[in-house]
Amino acid sequence: MTGTIIEVEGLYHHYGDVAAVNGISFSVIEGEIFSFLGPNGAGKSTAINILITLLRIQQGMATVAGYNVQTDPQKVRNSIGIVFQDVTLDRDMTCREILEFHGRLYRMPSAERKQRIDELLTLVQLDAKRDVRTKHLSGGMKRRLEIARGLMTRPKVLFLDEPTIGLDPQTRMRMWDYIKAVNEEGTTIFLTTHYMDEADHLSDRISIIDHGRIIVTGTPYELKNTLGEDLIYLETDDLPGTRAALLAMDQVKELNEKSRGIVAMLNGDGTKILPQIIENLAGRRIRVNVANLKKPSMDDVFLHFTGRELRDEGAEKASSAVIRAGRR
């Protein structure tokens, strides 16, 4: 049985004059991994905070697991698990106590609580750390413990707000494996991230969100295919001639000029089209100096739809600090 498990219709949220969420509508299908991909400040966390009932709805409608977040917040809370953006573990409690506390908050019966704690500590491979205080855990272990906590009450939907932020590449990959394993057990996952590769690797469907609006939604494959199947970058000794030659080819969908070369978005398999292009250009006596074939990445997709690079807040702050320092 598959239906929608999250329904959002016309959601707005303002902080003073600033619209953090500016009219979004979407639905999440039961059993999938759904991602909000967007830069920091795009409105991802505000949207998630409304869905997990931490923020009151200002305008619009949202249901989670069949319950309205505005009129039935208690039932929504009982149906969801949450992994928050920053680590929210009491440094001075042990792994077992963290899960015990969570189970008690949700009024799980004692026997079920004990059993679930054992199961989950095994799942996230923290058995050996059971009685260790969380301040002694590594970043990856903390995150795994938080995922275990999110799963404590067997939620229908697990919300993961930037789950791998600040983790090293190996740990991130392992987190992805855990997230996939949890999803395969039947838990719907709602993920926010500003990592393109993460959204690409994990999601069944992605919504790209920026400035509080959803720009486009689709499977990673669909999103990347809107840019054509493959991309070819060429540098030649005659760019205008190259341009004309490429536009004449059926296999080329769209051109994008760069400072020293041209990017062609293709309709078909680039490995076959690239030799044809080189042959075609050779026929016109145009020499190819550089050729690069690549599959479109989520970065390309994001750039295409938002017209800007993903930046993180840290980088922005750092650069403005440099400017300020420069003015002194």
Binding site: I52, L54, V87, T88, D90, H102, L105, Y106, R107, R149
Partner: peptide
Amino acid sequence: WGLMREIFASP
């Protein structure tokens, strides 16, 4: 420290 979020989002 964000710990209150867990409690406020619970039933």
